[in-house]
Amino acid sequence: MAQPTCWIVYNGNLPQKKFMDFAEWTARAAEKKGITPSIIKNNELLVSFTNGKSSISGRYENSSPDFVIFGDKDVFLAKQLEKLGIPVYNSADSIEICDNKSRMYQTLADHGIPFPKTIIAPKVFGDLHDYSHYPAIVKEIGFPMVIKEAFGSFGMQVHLAENEQRLLELMRTLKNTEYVFQEMVGSSYGRDVRINIVDGKAVACMLRRSESDFRANVSFGGKTEPYTPTEEQVQLAAACAEVTGTAFAGVDLLFGPDGSPLVCEINSNAHIRSIYECTGIDVALPMMDFILDDLKRRGSVHE
């Protein structure tokens, strides 16, 4: 019987090595599990509409894999692959939930999952002219305040407002960008926990700590160390994966003032090199095991 085949999709417009690194890392794991991978740029798969019908055109229009590992956030491409009957991991809807922080926090709130006090910035068209919502936000959240752009990764679109002047400056600069206002959790300043969840189970965990930034991200100088999570942290991370529909996810947790964990965010496209370098655990291997088991349940592959 032929080996299962998979496409590993990454964003062709992102030149940084860490994006290609994820694709290459998961490709090696696929090969170890007897899967034949192809690494494909998202711009080699074009979502096309002709005579009222949708299809994939471009370089790979006449081929189809057994499944796709979607290491990108091109949601409409992921949706189109699903429309063609190809299993996509993670699903388009789960990627969309995690990619948009406003939708992510609404989803978490719908299921009673704890996270810092958050307000979604009102929709703005063009420049910001009406600041009438500003006093209510300051009264509700106070300073310092975290401003998170709805779309962003590696902490690069997360800002800190220490006072009113900085907050107003950020609001003017962001204008019609979607973002949220969020409470700063002082008890977790510069540190968080990353738990990688696969099929509802914690497979790897690390503590991230920064001595120089309120963000613990490695991209901003955060250091990592292996960490044994509490049962409460594991259950919370697993619940996040469940409610967002992610088969596998990197869940970032904060340390609340009373010691209880709070959700920072959920990553549906979590990069896995840093947690491997920290813990020695290759998260891609259990990811492949889950996918093969899921395909068997679907009847897509056989023993």
Rank of each mutant, 00 (worst) to 15 (best):
F220S: 13
W7M: 01
F19N: 00
P4H: 13
L14W: 08
E61C: 05
M145E: 10
V234K: 03
P257A: 05
D258Y: 12
D293P: 04
Y134S: 13
K123L: 13
D74M: 07
H271C: 01
D199F: 12
V243M: 12
L295R: 02
P116H: 10
F67V: 02
N13E: 14
R273C: 05
R215E: 08
Y131M: 15
L77G: 02
I291E: 04
K139L: 09
T5E: 11
C205A: 13
E303K: 07
E96Q: 09
G155P: 01
R172T: 10
E96A: 07
I275D: 05
N267H: 05
E242H: 10
M1K: 08
A238M: 04
N217R: 11
E277A: 04
T177P: 05
S57L: 13
V185W: 05
S210R: 03
V185C: 01
A27E: 10
A239S: 06
V138C: 12
L236M: 09
M184W: 06
S132K: 12
D66Y: 00
G200Y: 15
S300G: 10
C6G: 01
I39T: 03
Q165S: 15
H133T: 07
I141H: 03
S54K: 12
L295V: 07
T50E: 09
A29R: 08
H271G: 00
A150N: 09
E169D: 15
I141W: 01
C98G: 02
Y60W: 15
V218L: 07
T244H: 11
K175L: 01
P226C: 07
R191F: 04
D130H: 07
E178I: 01
G250F: 10
V218D: 03
V203G: 02
D289H: 02
M145P: 10
K296V: 09
S94F: 06
G52M: 15
V193D: 04
G280M: 01
F19S: 02
G200I: 02
T177K: 09
T246F: 06
E211K: 00
I97A: 07
V234I: 11
A109V: 04
I275P: 05
K117R: 14
G142M: 11
V218F: 14
G85S: 04
P114W: 08
G222K: 09
M145T: 00
Q157T: 15
L81G: 12
L295C: 03
W25T: 00
Y10K: 08
E164A: 14
M206E: 03
T107M: 12
R194S: 03
K117P: 00
F248V: 01
G256Q: 15
A202K: 02
